[in-house]
Simulated scan of single mutants.
Amino acid sequence: MDDTSPTRDTTTPRPPRGRLQRHRLPAALVAGALMTLALVLTAVLAPLLPLPDPDTGSLAQRLLPPGSAGHLLGTDGQGRDLLSRLVWGTQPSLVVGFLPVMVAGIIGTVLGIVAGLGGRGLENAVMRSLDVLFAFPAVLLAISIAASLGAGLTSLIIALSVILVPAVARVVVTEVARLRELDFMQAAQASGATWPTIALRHVLPGIVPPVTVYCSALVGLSIVLGAGLSFLGLGVAPPRAEWGAMLDDVRQHIFVAPLLTLIPAVAIFLASVAFNVLGEGLRRHFDVRSRYTV
């Protein structure tokens, strides 16, 4: 036998197929978390930053272009610093993003669990009632609710919460229906456990991951819808800074200073992207199957 013939190296064993790999946080989760953290820090640290008063302007300095001395992003039609208004506008924009989703998440989860565990009759009653809200376009329904309650941050939160509850409840009902077919659920029912016990000990831990992923994406949608309602004059009352209201302020000057209209629009876009990327990262993180080799 030729000693120079290639031999197979058997000293390093190959990992078996299907072995659990060392879990790393998905890149989307890290990127989304960093972008979200940047938004939250901007909102929290706004009072501490050396910025001009966002509600005070000078007509002598109106519509200054970005890069002007003392005004990095320029000024609006009333001479107010756009960078200051952009930073201060992060606070109400995030409130409009988070609070409606939290309210809708809690109410929708409760309704979804009740409908999923309460039997066919109760499920039909709850879901058909929520389908009434689905019959209306979400934006038009939000406009109607906000307009009937009067312009303001509270009205905006209530309107967005109402239109988001049915969507969360439908996701929860779907997940509960999936869990009902699993062996541990059938064993719990056979053991005589009451449905509140089943809901708290078995159903709730199983639906938290998908509901968290879905709600994180809804935050971005809520920010966009809230900005749209503020653009229509149904959100935060002027002169308080808010991204949708800022977009409305510079809209009338779009042909004179078109670059200024992009500033609040880009902020809304980036905030929406941040929470959608965060949601995608959470989905990958909770997907146990992605931790195994094929």
Rank of each mutant, 00 (worst) to 15 (best):
V95S: 01
P166H: 07
L86H: 07
E242W: 02
A27V: 15
L221A: 05
Q186E: 06
R170K: 15
A27M: 13
G152P: 06
Q186C: 00
V236S: 08
A46M: 12
R180D: 01
P258V: 10
T12M: 10
E242S: 01
S144P: 06
D81M: 05
L39G: 08
Q186K: 15
V208H: 06
L260V: 11
H71Y: 12
S5G: 01
H23L: 14
I143S: 03
L59Q: 12
V208G: 10
Y292P: 09
E123A: 11
R240E: 11
S58D: 15
V139L: 14
G279D: 04
R201N: 13
L64Q: 11
E242K: 01
R201C: 00
L122K: 13
T42G: 12
G281A: 03
Y214P: 01
L247F: 06
P92A: 12
D131Q: 09
A167G: 13
R24G: 14
V211M: 06
P52Y: 05
R180H: 02
G89L: 07
V87L: 02
T11Q: 09
L204H: 13
V250C: 04
V172G: 02
L262R: 12
A190C: 11
G119Q: 05
S68W: 09
Y292H: 09
A138C: 07
V114N: 01
R128Q: 12
P100E: 00
A245C: 00
S5K: 12
